[in-house]
Design a binder for these strands. Structure first.
Lengths: 256, 256
DNA sequence: ACACCCGTTCCATTCGGCAAAACGATCTTC
DNA sequence: GAAGATCGTTTTGCCGAATGGAACGGGTGT
């Protein structure tokens, strides 16, 4: 299932690695990228000029940067998720209502991927943007999704990505995770108490269709200073829950 | 400047063409894509499994679709535009104020690229999304940008992309365009009166930094039924203009 | 004016991308 | 339930093309 390609196209892999490197380093010159990748300058040059030709990369003097063509493709990838179209207005409302950051998350390739993140009035400016990927088990939304997946799928994902620790609170063993997910299934709500970023608390809930299949998750995150225990454990879970109900209603109405 | 690469990496071009085709056809099976591209099945298969490996493509049964990894890269490409960060709140306000669709547009590779498009209360649902590209000369925002570019750059762009007609109102000759851009420079406002989509009217204005360099454009679009002449020629231009002033103030304050 | 750094071009080698065909799996049809 | 069609996967050999070394050119800064 999650096995790697038998005959990968190595040339294309190189091109993709270049894109990734530009992404990681936030742009760079030809020689920078070539040495970073351990590739010859002329090879890198050929790849880069191809990418510029195809408009996936923009050249600004000596600097190469990611081009907006990627946004066209990525924006389209997002739009094809009907969940996005159905849930976006509710996510915006959730952000307004809480004043914090409200997120819509789906699972892809074993990652938690943010489809939307709307900032409320007093939202703290953490670097979160549509398309961002994080490990599933360190986010509230990701845990909500994991809790709705069959055990063998969870094993697959752990085999592929492991359980990397982000803070001292992170879950790092399969046993801890199993226990945690059982609680999530009980409550219908997942928590992240500084497991990804110290001092950041997060409340999430899974979104199901009427067949009971998991579609994604909705979550709200804010700093512990404003996320007092009563808001974290009572108020926000109930707000998230009512948002969830509206979203599931929308989905099941529009897809009979 | 706008010349094509001397030694393009043809293998990577093929991979990119596959991505484009999936984009255009909104997904497809292996054999569909192979015949569409005139490529052998095994070749297409190798490329596709590489793309899935790299998480740029998602496989859902027999269907291949664009993956959200592209949204990660594209979202990042958008975030690196400081204009986006500075102008987004004003675009949202503009959408609220007018009830129509408010857009933030930049030029890249000779296209008008939508960085943001926020829907107001009564916005008509035209298919516009972040990352969408359109010819510059058929949109109000694009004309605003063109009007601020040096003539030789405009010639380059026309050489590369031509002046494709979208409706019977579209500008199709260099002379018409020159005349139109002169008016835009006079007024500081650009109009699109059904030049891209019949019955769609659009008001745009160019965003400059304090050096006078063009950064992008802001625009509002709505159906002619609501965009009566007085709103189209008076009310909306003045609203767009005041939005523009706030954005330019933000930019020049935060980048001294 | 000189030197350094970075991007570009040229060329030979060899690696790997490509197509044709055979195989396997899944779903439909009689 | 068997036969056939259709689609994805694998195998294999050949030729193209991606690669890296080295030389060239162009800009900038001291």
């Amino acid at each position: 299932m999650t096995e790697t390609a038998n005959h990968p196209v190595t040339t294309s892999q190189k091109t993709i690695r270049i894109l990734e490197t530009i992404f990681r380093k936030n742009g760079g010159t030809l020689t920078e990228l070539a040495s970073e990748l351990g590739m010859n300058k002329s090879t890198t040059h050929n790849h880069l000029s191809t990418l510029v030709d195809e408009e996936l990369v923009v050249r600004d003097g000596a600097e190469y940067r990611l081009g907006l063509r990627l946004l066209e493709l990525g924006g389209y990838a997002r739009n094809q998720h009907t969940l996005y179209q159905q849930a976006l207005p509710e996510i915006e409302r959730l952000a307004d209502q809480t004043g914090e950051i409200a997120n819509l998350v789906v699972e892809e390739h074993g990652h938690a991927v943010y489809l939307a993140c709307e900032a409320g009035a007093q939202a703290v400016n953490i670097e979160v943007y549509p398309g961002l990927r994080r490990p599933l088990q360190v986010t509230a939304a990701g845990k909500a999704i994991l809790a709705s997946l069959p055990a063998e799928r969870i094993d697959e994902i752990i085999d592929r990505h492991g359980l990397p620790a982000k803070t001292s609170n992170s879950i790092t063993t399969r046993d801890e995770l199993t226990e945690c997910l059982a609680e999530v299934r009980d409550r219908g709500i997942a928590f992240d108490d500084g497991e990804h970023i110290d001092g950041l608390r997060c409340v999430g809930a899974p979104i199901h269709d009427d067949d009971g299949d998991i579609l994604g998750a909705v979550s709200v995150s804010g700093p512990a200073s404003r996320m007092t225990d009563d808001r974290f454990y009572d108020e926000f879970p109930s707000i998230v829950n009512s948002t969830l109900n509206v979203i599931e209603l929308n989905i099941n109405q529009n897809a009979p």
